[in-house]
Amino acid sequence: MSTISSSEISRLQICLRRLLGAKGLSVNAPPRAGLSVELAVDGEVIGTVHRDDDEGEVSYTINIILLEEDLPPAA
Rank of each mutant, 00 (worst) to 15 (best):
M1Y: 10
M1E: 09
M1V: 12
M1F: 11
T3M: 08
I4G: 04
I4N: 05
S5V: 02
S5K: 02
S6L: 12
S6D: 13
S7D: 12
E8Q: 13
I9M: 09
R11S: 15
L12T: 05
Q13D: 04
Q13L: 01
I14K: 15
I14N: 13
R17I: 02
R17G: 02
R18E: 13
R18V: 04
L19A: 12
L19N: 10
L20P: 00
A22N: 06
A22I: 15
G24P: 00
G24V: 00
L25V: 02
L25S: 08
L25W: 08
L25N: 04
A29R: 08
P30E: 03
A33E: 13
S36Q: 09
E38H: 04
E38M: 07
L39V: 15
A40R: 08
A40E: 10
V41A: 01
V41M: 04
D42S: 08
E44S: 06
T48K: 07
T48P: 00
R51A: 10
D52G: 07
E55K: 11
E55A: 12
E55H: 14
S59Q: 09
S59L: 03
T61H: 09
I62N: 02
I62M: 13
N63F: 09
N63G: 11
N63H: 14
I64L: 15
I65W: 08
I65H: 09
L66V: 13
L66C: 07
L66Y: 06
E69G: 03
E69F: 02
E69Q: 09
D70A: 13
P72H: 07
P73H: 05
P73M: 04
A74M: 06
A74T: 10
A74P: 08
A75T: 07
